[in-house]
Design a protein around this nucleic acid. Structure first.
Lengths: 236, 236
DNA sequence: CGGCAATTTGATATCCATCAATCGGTGTGG
DNA sequence: CCACACCGATTGATGGATATCAAATTGCCG
């Protein structure tokens, strides 16, 4: 799945000088069921990791941003698919090379394990959202999540930095819906609810200004991505 | 988080001769926010790992069974709580001891990493359930999940073994509801739906006979815990 | 037998999904 | 430059699934 690159996640040096691959929006990087013989790191763009049921229902498990690692798998086949949301560039490395690197270097393995743990924690947030939150609470969490990633990929330490005023929403309503366990119409309506409550303002359908961070955070509940503990472990 | 113990998950030897702790139903083993300085392995009983929101909503993230490992954390504080569902006995080990063991022995670290991956895959099943499935589909998945665990803890290779005819449901309706993202009344009604459809029969409120495995599996969709690939990696 | 807690069932309310129409950009061709 | 078509987003009207509130039932323990 995916996570932050800590600037000092040493195992990432396996991507040094590796081949890159360019992806157009909608292009599939990983097909579920394929042999899991490659791992990737995102250089630019936004990707989406999802799982599809036999009847066509789709659950987006995670959005992936710059410096996210992709390709974790317990088995020898991917059990999820990954596709590009925006134009994107990824670096490719054979899984075997990563494994050898991890086996040889305890520090690399430790860093890798830590990354996996962070992925796990993030997913538990998602579980809480899907199980317990209402539609507009989920959207509030999602917007804070996008802001959080903007902050990390731009390495902005200041929580009140002006460039964080507007958040880019690169994915479409349907992708958001499949991530939040809703339908696209409900996502639209939830945007409107947040806007009418004065929490956000839609500049256009892919840009949102967060007008009332404290109330958004209150709506989102425990999953405040800007909480000191989480940022500390992410920006370390 | 939790997972199977593969019989050969070597890192588990840190629990050899370690202290044990007995838990009564409802007793809390881990309080969210506490320093994460211990790890546990379950010798008997069923536990429940959950997260509570500021307003009291609770999401059960996982049920934990015999030989499950408990205490994974990316940071130095637990971000979830764990309590006993049934009377239970756990073995306790200082986190430091485990870490030293993992640092010293690459094979142990590899086994540990594999366990964490399996936990991750399991959680992604949960995400799909919460995001995409209806109430009775979730319950069908849950019953297959309990059967799966019975099979693993009793190491029953035969999928049609008679002792798998009836499944024990050790937890109460409210705990199930908080795991499936439903209310307890809805869990009751979903039991009735499955029963009226001839898929199950409630022997009593904590025992269910699975009468039509094929149709239950179809209802559950992709998350068939008995799929050959999953069992292979679990029973290896 | 009596009482308490968990479960089940029933009646109603709420939220989200569904179905359908409209709006708003964007690109194309006249 | 404007008319038109297309696609995603929004809005509206309605339906359905689950939540909520309340009562009845079951099982369990003293």
């Amino acid at each position: 799945m995916a996570d932050l690159r800590l600037p000092n996640d040493v195992f990432l040096d396996v991507f040094r000088g590796a081949a890159t691959r360019e992806l157009a929006p909608g292009e599939v990087l990983i097909h579920a069921g394929q042999p899991a013989d490659q791992v990737f790191n995102i250089e630019s763009g936004v990707l989406m990791l999802y799982r599809t049921g036999t009847d066509g229902r789709r659950q987006v498990l995670s959005f992936l941003f710059r410096d996210n690692f992709v390709g974790l798998s317990a088995t020898d086949a991917y059990f999820f698919s990954v596709e590009a949301v925006t134009p994107a560039r990824v670096v490719v490395c054979p899984r075997r090379v990563l494994n050898e690197r991890l086996a040889r270097d305890p520090a690399a393995e430790q860093a890798f394990l830590n990354m996996v743990f962070r992925v796990l924690e993030d997913i538990l947030d998602v579980v809480y959202s899907l199980g317990q939150r209402t539609a507009s609470e989920r959207l509030a969490v999602f917007l804070l999540y996008l802001r959080h990633w903007k902050r990390l990929t731009d390495t902005i330490a200041d929580d009140a930095h002006p460039s964080l005023g507007a958040v880019q929403v690169p994915m479409g309503r349907e992708d958001i819906a499949d991530f939040l366990g809703l339908k696209k119409e409900t996502v639209s309506r939830s945007f409107r609810e947040l806007e009418q409550a004065g929490l956000i303002h839609r500049l256009d359908s892919h840009t949102v200004r967060l007008d009332d961070l404290p109330r958004l955070r209150q709506l989102a509940g425990i999953s405040d991505f800007a909480s000191p503990r989480r940022l500390a472990s992410a920006l370390r």
